[in-house]
Every structure is written in structure tokens, then in C-alpha cells.
Nucleic acid binder design. Structure first.
Lengths: 207, 207
DNA sequence: TAGATTGTTAATCGATTAACAATC
DNA sequence: TAGATTGTTAATCGATTAACAATC
């Protein structure tokens, strides 16, 4: 694990990546930290500092090669790994994620769906058959799943996380509004929608 | 707008709120910053510091009254306002949010759905009829919408944001993967799912 | 050459952590 | 009283911003 790189920096990399993608779509060859900053509302100094963490990608007096920088950031983010996802909990949110198109363009693909609800097992969602959650280990192995996506109720989330890890997933993307305990070797990202909504409420309540 | 309160602190308030809710469900009367910290993996000092920003809620030597602190944090977050949401873009994600149950327990309710796709207009989702997005102003006024939820493709998001603000919403919850320009008087929270997934990829790629 | 822009070091700012007096 | 725990001040740590030499 590379040390000394702040989460704040890592969180900005996907923004740089996306903006470079759009710039490439516009046939832009070269882009400056100034222009990148303008498009993202981030200071150019911040962008140069972030990039300098990983290497020297630009040319003084010129700027950054759009395509080259995009490729480099993509590699830093590990996007070429083409991660394979399994979604556990095929409710409304799980189903929506199964259909979400933005992920495939980044190199992620949903390869398996699981649910413990027998009435869902066997049905098809976005071309995938829902598997019985009790067959976690088999499904994860057969589909070479890298990432487990948790979209079950909060009180079932820890059990699902444990099962996913036992089955061999390498990372967890958690949508359940609860704190999960996972080994420090398993990266975990929490996507807690009610936090964002609550902080919006907070800001709307000021003045 | 209350100044000098960090976003980091505000982001932790919903976690405290939820944990207190669970503690209340367990009939717990009193809780210490130590116990709260244990349940959330946050240091007790951090919790006391956060709370001290807003007032004195505890009793030295004793701890915090669970119910009272929950109520106080709820008020700080503005949850008693019972905000009314309109979802623009009834695709998979918009539909999932329309059905999402966690919000109502926090005092949010989805009161209107809009989409520009004529084949969706008039259909019902979770008991609500989908309105034509071109009738934004009328729908927002008629339903007293406070918060606009944007679940349209990135290239349509700015237009939808402008229309929502013109129609009078007080805040925006944006799921489109793009930077939105809104007046500084309109609180905006971005919920960009691909950022979380990309940072997960980053961490999984280290070592 | 003059102008533009990076990469990097130094300065500043803000958030977290530690320490402890107050007090139940 | 002794033990527990808050609220708050001081110390530390880390992230952002500013400045500027290098160089295209």
C-alpha cells in the first residue's frame, strides 16, 4: 500500500480522469492545470500538487498531453484491471446499480446478482439471473468476482460482508447505512446516501 | 449561514444521529462519547469537539442523554423541516430513489417525479404519477417542493438544475457525474457514485 | 528572447489529537 | 471522597495555498 497519499487527493483523481475524457472527446491535445482547474473549480496549484504525488506528467511552459495524462491517471486508479462486480441485494437500489451504465465505461462490469429472497432467485435483471445468496462462495468463484456490492438492509450488511470476504472478494462497495468491520487488507468504500441528504438539510436550514 | 463549522464535522452529525437512534431503540438512556466512538470508529475527543461546536449537550462525569442528544442533533441537521423532494429523471436510479425507504424515517418525502421522456409521463412509480419535465415550475409549486433530485444524464444536468432553481427549489441533490453551477444561495450536494467506485479500484490496485 | 506553465519548496491554514480543569 | 466524563485550551499533524526557479 503506497503511503502518504491523502484520501482527498485520491478522491480528486476520478474528477481529473473524467474531465480529461471529455477534453479528449473535444479533440483537445494539450491542457493546462489552469484550464483543468477552471472546468472543475479546483485551483491549478492543487491539481499540480496532486499529480506531482504520482510523477511528472506535464511539460513546463506547455501543459499536459490530454490523452497521455488520462491514460496515466487511469492506470493510477487501476481502471485497466476491469474489475468484476457482484451485487448482493437486488432491491430497488441493487437493481438500479445492475443497470447503471456509467460503470462499464470506466471498466467495471456487473457479472453476478445475489439475493436471499427466494421469489427473486431465478429472475433476470439486465440480462443476469439472480442467484441464491446462500451460494455466495460458488457464485463468486465461478464468476471471478473482484468487488462485492452490498445493497441489503443495514442489519444484514455485516453478514453479507463476511460472506463476501470468505468467498474471496478483494474489495467492498457498501450502500448499507451502517459501519462494517472488515480486515484492513480489504478496501471498503461506503456510499451512504442518507449522509449527503442530511448534510443538504443542514445547509438548507442555515439562515 | 453559520460560519466556521467544517464540512467534516457536518458529515459526522448524521452518523451520530443514526447511532443515537439505534441506542434509543435499545432503550439506552445515557451514552458516553467513548461508547459512541466505539460504535462508529471515531475518537471520543473528536465527537466531543464536534458537539461542542453547537452547544453543551452532555453532563460532566455522566455522559449524554441519548434521546435528548438525538433530538438536538436532529434539529441542528434541520430534519424536523420534513423536506419535500422532487426527482427529475425517472430512470433506474431515479426510480430506485423514489422507492428508497431510508429517507422517510429521516423526515424526507418524495412528493413528485418528473421526466422529459413522453413514454414515461403518466406512468406511476411508487404511487406517484410521472410528470412532464417541461412543467417543472407548475409541479414544483403545486407540490411545495423543497429539494430537487437530479438523476438525468450528465449532459442534461445543468439545464435541469437551472430549471429547478428557477422553479423555486431551495436545495439540490445531484447524482449526475458533472460539476453543476448554482448560485451560492442554493445548497448543492453531489452524490457521484463513480468516484467511490474509482477510489475503491485505486485502493485495490495498491500492492 | 519573452511568455507560459510545470514541479517543488516554503508558508499558511485548518482539522485532529492530546491534555486537563471542571464537575457530576 | 474517588472515579468517570465532559468541555475547552494547547499542541500536533496534515492539507492547501503561495511563491518561484526551471524550462519549454
Amino acid at each position: 500500500m503506497k503511503k502518504g497519499i491523502s484520501q482527498a487527493t485520491i478522491d480528486r483523481l476520478p474528477l481529473y480522469f473524467r474531465t480529461l475524457q471529455l477534453a479528449a472527446d473535444e479533440q483537445l491535445q494539450i491542457i493546462s492545470s489552469d484550464e483543468l482547474g477552471r472546468r472543475l473549480d479546483i485551483t491549478p496549484e492543487q491539481i499540480r500538487k496532486d499529480l506531482a504525488t504520482f510523477g511528472q506528467f506535464g511539460r513546463k511552459g506547455i501543459g499536459y498531453d490530454v490523452h497521455e495524462l488520462k491514460e496515466n491517471i487511469g492506470k493510477i486508479l487501476g481502471l485497466p484491471n476491469r474489475w468484476r462486480l457482484a451485487i448482493v441485494g437486488v432491491g430497488h437500489l441493487g437493481g438500479a446499480l445492475a443497470n447503471y451504465v456509467n460503470f462499464s465505461s470506466l471498466g467495471f462490469s456487473v457479472v453476478a446478482l445475489l439475493d436471499k429472497n427466494k421469489s427473486l432467485v431465478g429472475t433476470r435483471v439486465n440480462g443476469l439471473t439472480v442467484n441464491d445468496a446462500s451460494k455466495m462462495k460458488r457464485v463468486v468463484a465461478a464468476n471471478e468476482v473482484d468487488i462485492g456490492v452490498i445493497t441489503v438492509p443495514a442489519d444484514e450488511a455485516q453478514g453479507v460482508a463476511d460472506a463476501l470476504i470468505a468467498a474471496g472478494v478483494k474489495g467492498i462497495w457498501n450502500f448499507a447505512p451502517t459501519k462494517l468491520n472488515v480486515p484492513s487488507t480489504i478496501p471498503l468504500v461506503n456510499e451512504d446516501l442518507s449522509i449527503g441528504l442530511s448534510t443538504l438539510s443542514y445547509h438548507m436550514s442555515q439562515e
